[in-house]
Amino acid sequence: MLEVDRQQVMAYRVATQGLLRTASDPAALRVFDLGVQDSTRDTALLALVARSRASASLVGDSRFTLAWTHRGAPHFHRSAELPGLAAALLPLDDADARARMAWRRRDVEQAGMPVTEAIRVTAGAIREVATAPMTKGAVSGAISPRLPEGLVRWCRPCGVTHVHEQLMRLSALPAGVGLVAGASPATLMPLDGVPGVPASPDLAGATRIVRHYLALHGPATAADTAGFVGTTGKVVERSLWPDDLVEVRVDGRRAFLPAEDADRLTSPPEPAAVRLLPPWDPLLQARDRAVLVPDRAHHKEVWKILGNPGALLAGGEIAGTWRAKVSGHRLALTVSPLWPLSPAVRAAVSEEAERVAAARGLGLGSVTWK
C-alpha cells in the first residue's frame, strides 16, 4: 500500500491532466479519455488553452465531437471514441438509472415503466426524429407527442408539456445523436458510427470510464467516482470497479489508483504552473473537494450553486478565483486570490490572461486584483 500526502496528489493531477503544458497535440491530452465539459462560456476552449502550447479550438476540429454524456452535461470527446460511449453510458439496471435520472419512487410510478425502458423508448423517438441538425426545442417538440404520457411533464417556464429534460439528455447519445459545437440555441445532430439504440449496456466500457476517472482524479474512492458518473457508490463497487488498482493512503484516507499510474503519483513533476482554469475545468471536476481546496471556508468561493467563477492554479494549489467581462473587443479580468500571491505569480497571471483573451478573439483590457 502506498502512502502519499495531499501535495503529491495535487502535483500528480496537475501533471496527468496536462496542466504542465507539455503536449503539442490536444487529442493526446489524457483529459479527453474522460471528456471535457463545455458551456456557453467557452469552458472547453479555455480548458484547452490551459493545457496546449498552441492556440487551438475544438469547434470545427473533426477530431472532437460534442455530446450530452456524463450526468447529461455537454462534453467534448474524441470523435472516434464517442460511438463506444453510447452503450457504455447506458444505465446498468433500474437502480442505476434512477440515480442517474435523480428520480424518486413517485417519478417512476408516473412514468409507468422501468427507468431503463424509459431511456430506450425516448432514445428510439429521438433517433426517428433527429435525422438532420435540429434545435433542442424542435426535437423536444417533435418527440413529446410520440412518447407515453408518463414520460412528459408540464414545464412552467416553457408553458408547454414536453419530455423530461434529463431523460432527453441521457437518451440522446444512445440514440446516436450529438450536439453541434458552438451552436446557440443547442442543436442536435445525428452521429456516424451508432447503428441503433444499443441492445444492452457495455459493462467493459462503463468500467473503463471509472478507470479513467481514477487515473485523472485519483487516488479516489468509489463514492468519488460515482459522484462524477452520476450514480451511486454501490453501483460502482458492485459492477464497475476495475481489477488493476492499488490502494493508497492520502494523509490517512483510503483511496485507489490504477496500478500503471502509481510511479507517477509517488514522484510527480514539480507543479510550478500558473494557469487560469475555466469553470468546470477537468481539474475542478474531482469529487474530493477537500483535496483540491483543503480550507472548507474557501469552497463557497470556488464552487457556487449558480455562476461558478474560474479558478487560479498556482504552485499546485487552487490559489484564487477569476471572472471575465467583455467590453467591446476587450476582455477585463478580475482576480480574487485566496491568500497573498508573489509578484512573479501575478505577472504569470497577466501572461495567462493574454492567452485567454486571444483564444476568445479579444484583446486584454485589464487585470484587476481584488
Score class of each variant (00 low, 15 high):
residue 128 E to N: 04
residue 73 A to I: 00
residue 148 P to V: 10
residue 139 V to H: 11
residue 125 A to T: 00
residue 125 A to S: 09
residue 161 T to W: 00
residue 145 P to R: 01
residue 73 A to Y: 13
residue 73 A to S: 10
residue 147 L to H: 12
residue 150 G to V: 14
residue 103 W to G: 09
residue 143 I to N: 14
residue 156 R to G: 12
residue 121 V to C: 08
residue 131 T to F: 03
residue 128 E to R: 01
residue 161 T to H: 15
residue 127 R to D: 14
residue 137 G to E: 03
residue 133 P to T: 02
residue 84 G to F: 10
residue 153 R to Q: 15
residue 97 A to I: 02
residue 109 E to P: 04
residue 105 R to L: 06
residue 79 S to H: 06
residue 130 A to S: 03
residue 160 V to F: 07
residue 146 R to K: 13
residue 131 T to D: 08
residue 147 L to E: 00
residue 124 G to T: 00
residue 141 G to C: 12
residue 85 L to A: 02
residue 138 A to H: 13
residue 80 A to C: 12
residue 92 L to F: 09
residue 88 A to I: 02
residue 113 M to Y: 07
residue 151 L to V: 14
residue 133 P to C: 12
residue 130 A to E: 08
residue 85 L to C: 03
residue 161 T to K: 15
residue 162 H to R: 14
residue 120 R to H: 00
residue 83 P to S: 02
residue 145 P to A: 10
residue 93 D to R: 11
residue 155 C to M: 08
residue 142 A to N: 05
residue 111 A to C: 05
residue 148 P to C: 04
residue 138 A to S: 14
residue 105 R to A: 11
residue 100 R to M: 04
residue 95 A to Y: 07
residue 77 H to N: 11
residue 100 R to N: 02
residue 93 D to I: 09
residue 147 L to C: 13
residue 118 A to C: 10
residue 86 A to D: 10
residue 86 A to L: 10
residue 71 R to C: 00
residue 73 A to L: 05
residue 82 L to Q: 00
residue 104 R to C: 06
residue 110 Q to D: 08
residue 83 P to R: 09
residue 104 R to G: 12
